[in-house]
């Protein structure tokens, strides 16, 4: 069974159409990337899948179940999201402990902090961080907390919206390693949105290249490594990234 299936997805923001007829399938356990420049509609697709935007037509299926935008079922236990900005994605007045316990409280899961401790360990944060406020942590540490929060409900699907683009190179490496490790350990499916092709190469199996709201091409990691895209636009993106990575 595939984890995500999009069929002819159209998304409009107040009458401006930003995604045109996107179709793709992400298999269970796969790590898939949506790649494109700003304004290509990649984040918009992510928001439609998780339910932050209901202004779409077409079909979204999660694990075989059709999603109805008007009658939103709670998919929080199936899918969770990690956001781009580690400074904006944590509530500034809540401690790490409160942030992590919140999803359990919402779903009435009885737990005396064991899962919080376990998740902090899983994302490589020591217990000293448990009762800190976000402003007492660095960007990388905050992003770890955000990842831990996404994992609290044991979802199968993780939606990653540029999870490392606001971080320093060395911190990015740590977070990428962590994501890769977690995916292996917890058997997660990833849908990653990014503009950074090398990140895709490290973390993903396949990628869809988007341009102006359309999916131009779906390619494999192998094609990315060798630079053998079929579409000229994908090739252009590849060259631009390559240009940067001569060193």
């Amino acid at each position: 069974m595939s984890a995500i299936e999009l069929n002819n997805l159209n998304i409009a923001y107040s009458s401006v159409q930003v995604v045109h007829g996107a179709s793709l399938t992400v298999e269970e356990g796969e790590s898939f990337a949506l790649v494109g420049e700003s304004g290509s509609g990649k984040s918009t697709i992510l928001k439609a899948i998780c339910g932050l935007n209901d202004e779409w037509t077409g079909e979204i299926k999660l694990y075989g179940e059709k999603v109805d935008p008007r009658k939103r079922a709670d998919i929080s236990r199936i899918s969770q999201m990690v956001f781009q900005d580690p400074y904006g994605s944590l509530h500034p007045r809540k401690t790490v402990d409160t942030t992590l316990s919140e999803p359990l409280t919402i779903h009435g899961i009885k737990d005396n902090g064991d899962r919080v401790v376990e998740m902090l360990n899983a994302v490589g944060l020591d217990q000293r961080y448990r009762f800190r406020f976000p402003h007492q942590m660095s960007g990388g540490q905050r992003q770890r907390v955000a990842i831990a929060r996404a994992l609290m409900l044991k979802p199968k699907l993780m939606l990653l919206d540029e999870p490392t683009s606001a971080l320093d190179v060395s911190v990015q490496a740590e977070i990428l390693n962590l994501l890769k490790q977690l995916r292996k350990d917890q058997n997660l499916t990833f849908l990653l949105v990014t503009h950074d092709l090398p990140v895709v190469s490290f973390l993903c199996d396949r990628l869809a290249v988007m341009k102006k709201g359309k999916i131009v091409e779906i390619a494999t990691r192998d094609q990315l490594a060798k630079g053998t895209f079929n579409e000229p636009y994908s090739q252009e993106l590849y060259q631009a990234s390559k240009h940067e990575h001569v060193a």
């Binding site: 339910g51 932050l52 999201m81 904006g88 994605s89 500034p92 779903h107």
Partner: peptide, 25 residues
């Protein structure tokens, strides 16, 4: 803000979001 989106994605009801996350701020 992303932290409000995040709590929505965890299945919190609007009442809960307003009382626990919006009001304290």
């Amino acid at each position: 803000a992303e932290f409000i989106d995040a709590i929505k994605l965890q299945g919190a009801s609007p009442a809960r979001i307003i009382i626990n996350h919006v009001l304290p701020l």
